[in-house]
């Protein structure tokens, strides 16, 4: 990437970012206010008197016009105050610091597993198109794609935790290890290593295996299908025929010629997958009792806990913007034409 292109890219993002976030907050805010959900009830209880209801209604500023509520909120956010969550009685920022690392850990490992499984399977399937290998891989990925996460998670637990006893059960860590390691990054795998608690690290790894495999398998299904079709696209091109005619070994043709040219598209696919996993997978988190962003956001939505919803949405927005930016940069680095 040349220096000029780099600056242009930077400028583009500097202008896009604030607009994106303002739009994101505005849309979430308006949707939150027109939803037929009453946050006051959550605070005062369903049997509250009229006075108690009215008082909290005013405390939340709901009597103000919508634009005024919005301006107050934006003002608070600019000062770093995302408000209190009414479903946890804690500042939203604290909640996010707690739930995002749990999801980040799971989604990252899930994506790594998904990529390590999906890309090779996609390549092989494309290289052996129409054979029994291709069919097998397609069925495997179809299952990963179409079997509900809920069922898959439960079956994994049943087999590997309950019957075979190879892995730990639901949750992030065994209860007797809970709260021993100081929270630094919020990532248990990292915090336990920083604290030098190897046993706790392995316990966390143990708990991570099933949910990460469950997510990774689902992700790999998509990645496999996409890799396969990108590869088929390339393998039918004339330059591949040329390479083969030149007498190159087939594996060289597949890996160095065809696969290299799918990288740009693949990066986008993997980044997107990662982004989706980072939103938090409600079902996986529910089955595996994983205290992540998905459960948090779902509960906040049902409760009309708008501070929490907007806070979580901003995080998710930031994740997507970052991933887009990263894949934008990678794209420019990988694609000679973009340079």
């Amino acid at each position: 990437m040349s220096a000029g292109a780099g600056i242009r890219l930077l400028l583009r993002w500097v202008t896009i970012l604030p607009i994106t976030f303002l739009g994101l907050i505005a849309v979430t805010f308006v949707i939150g206010r027109i939803m037929p959900i009453d946050p006051v009830i959550l605070i005062v209880g369903q049997d509250a008197s009229k006075e108690a209801y009215d008082r909290v209604y005013r405390e939340l500023g709901l009597h103000l016009p919508l634009y005024e509520q919005f301006l107050i909120y934006i003002d608070d956010v600019l000062r770093g105050d995302f408000g209190m969550s009414i479903s946890t009685a804690q500042p939203v920022i604290e909640d996010i610091k707690r739930v995002v690392p749990a999801t980040l850990e799971l989604a990252t490992i899930g994506t790594v597993i998904g990529t390590l499984l999906g890309v090779p399977m996609g390549i092989v399937a494309a290289a052996r198109q129409g054979t029994w290998i291709d069919s097998t891989i397609r069925v495997v990925s179809l299952i990963g794609y179409s079997v509900p996460v809920f069922w898959k998670g439960l079956m994994l637990l049943l087999l590997f935790y309950a019957v075979l006893g190879w892995t730990a059960g639901p949750g992030r860590i065994a209860v007797y290890y809970d709260g021993i390691v100081d929270v630094r990054t919020g990532l248990l795998l990292v915090d336990s290593l920083l604290a030098g608690e190897i046993e706790i690290f392995w316990n966390a790894v143990d708990h991570m295996i099933l949910p990460a495999v469950s997510l990774g398998y689902a992700a790999s299904a998509y990645i496999t299908r996409m890799t396969r079709s990108f590869m088929l696209d390339q393998l039918n091109q004339e330059y591949i025929t040329t390479a083969r005619v030149k007498g190159l070994a087939e594996w060289r043709v597949v890996l160095f010629h065809a696969f290299r040219n799918t990288l740009v598209q693949l990066v986008t696919v993997i980044a997107l997958t990662y982004g989706i996993l980072l939103e938090g997978s409600v079902l996986t988190e529910t089955v595996f009792a994983w205290p992540g962003l998905g459960q948090y956001l779902t509960k906040a939505l049902f409760n009309g806990d708008m501070n929490a919803v907007i806070g979580a949405t901003i995080v998710i927005g930031a994740v997507f913007v970052t991933l887009n930016l990263t894949s934008d940069i990678l794209y420019r680095m990988l694609d000679p034409r973009a340079q």
Partner: peptide
Amino acid sequence: VIVRHIPEAATQRLLLQKGD
């Protein structure tokens, strides 16, 4: 006394029968 948030009934049962 430790109360773990286990949202799913089937998971609760696994944990109970497993003794966790």
